[in-house]
Computed example of a mutant assay.
Amino acid sequence: MSRTRTEQIVDDVTFEVERGKILEFARATHTQDQVHTDTAIARANGFNDVLATPTHVAVAGHYRDQRGFVTSLGLAMERVVVGKVRWEYFRPLAAGDKLRGRRRVVSDERREGKRSGQMRLITLATDYIDARGDVVVRQSEVLVERGEQA
């Protein structure tokens, strides 16, 4: 196994947590808690607006330069799968929050696979920062670039 430790910044993204997107995520994930769908209930529970569902920051992908990201890491996109994603919340996200996400490479390693030859595992971390400068969500993900098939 070969491992490269790096803190390379691969992209920055800025977006607003939109009420309409929150409702789309709530429907798609069959969310039952009405703090995600009803502003009055969210406010009655002490929040300024409806709350985003746990995977909401995935919407950042719509604002990123995905082609530039793939190119900067030298990935063969047709061989890439997501191995793992984890979100750590420091506070709930609500409609109207403005976030900036800075994605960086935490590690980049190669391993020998049992069936697919050498694999590349890239661990990424994104800190989503609010308008006050506080980290509100940290997303960790592992991308796996499978080896070329013979």
Rank of each mutant, 00 (worst) to 15 (best):
M1F: 09
R3V: 15
R3E: 15
T4A: 05
I9D: 09
T14Y: 05
E16R: 03
E18R: 15
R19T: 03
G20I: 10
G20F: 07
K21M: 10
A26Y: 13
A26N: 11
A26W: 12
H30K: 15
Q32C: 08
D38N: 04
A42P: 00
A44E: 05
N48S: 15
N48A: 13
T53V: 15
T55W: 03
A58E: 05
G61W: 05
Y63F: 15
F69N: 03
V82D: 06
G83M: 01
E88N: 04
F90A: 13
R91K: 12
P92W: 14
A94C: 08
A94Y: 14
G96L: 00
D97G: 07
R100W: 06
R100L: 05
R102Y: 01
R102D: 00
R103C: 14
R104G: 06
V106G: 09
E109P: 12
R110D: 12
R111Y: 10
E112L: 01
G113I: 04
K114T: 11
K114N: 14
S116A: 13
L121N: 12
L121M: 11
T123F: 03
L124T: 06
A125C: 09
T126L: 10
Y128H: 09
D130Y: 12
G133W: 08
D134A: 14
V135Q: 15
V136F: 14
V137F: 05
V137G: 02
R138V: 00
R138A: 00
E141L: 15
L143M: 14
L143Y: 07
L143S: 01
R146H: 02
E148I: 13
Q149N: 10
